[in-house]
Amino acid sequence: MDETTLQVYSGLIALATALLVFVARIWRRRAQRRIAGLERLPAWTGRAIETNRPLHLSFGSAGIGGDNTPLALAGAELFHQIIEGAEAGDAPPMMSMSEAMSLPLAQDTARRAWKRGDHLARLRWLPSGRRSLAFAAALTDTARNEEPAAHVLAGSFGPELALILDSAERRGQPSLAASDQLAGQAVAFALADEALIGEELFAAPAYVSDDRRAGSDAVVMDLWRAFVIIGVTIALLLQFSQLMPEYNWPVLAGIGAVLLILGLVGYRRS
């Protein structure tokens, strides 16, 4: 693919997304699918309020300026909603990050959502790195000292997530984890009480807030995913038809339709 084609495609995708965002806004929010991992969040918030313990929210190594800027922003949005829900309590949430650039973001989030107290003292930064074990180890100390009501780890984590989740598990603190790294994702699935898979973290703000705009983002992501799946399926069928010319197009269309229906059924069930 030459540069111009790439530019045209990128531009088209950007425009289509912008268009979809506006279209999706007029959809009903129930077009969203269920994300099981988020359903226990309100209960944890309630627990934090009732037990007078803080919530621990962590960005991991997601930060502004790097390639995972959108991840940091999505995490901040989710944290904002969670903190707002927990604001009736007395223990202000604590936020941790290993990327210094997400410090201002975290402080801003905390300040907007939790309107009292000293926010800076509740932020924990520890030196960064792709796999910041020092950061993870320090958070195990947090799990012991501060006894958070729950850990919400939404950001960029590698396998070091195991240290944090393991210590939370030992102390009976529930945890929700989501990471944009494959290794972190696998660890989250194995060790966290709830795990968000893939882009679910980006859609999460829409599920814990009443914000219509965030909801439309989730719908747009679902739409894009549907497009990608349909595109991949069609490409696969075309490839298949080249390999086996005896399968003519009605058969392929039939297979495609069956796949599509299966996909829809799976989507409804999820």
Binding site: R30, E39, L41, D210
Partner: peptide, 16 residues
């Protein structure tokens, strides 16, 4: 705040 949490807590999602 209302809708999202009622939606989350509802065992039968609205669309069903």
């Amino acid at each position: 705040m209302k809708d999202d949490f009622s939606w989350l807590d509802d065992e039968r999602p609205l669309e069903r």
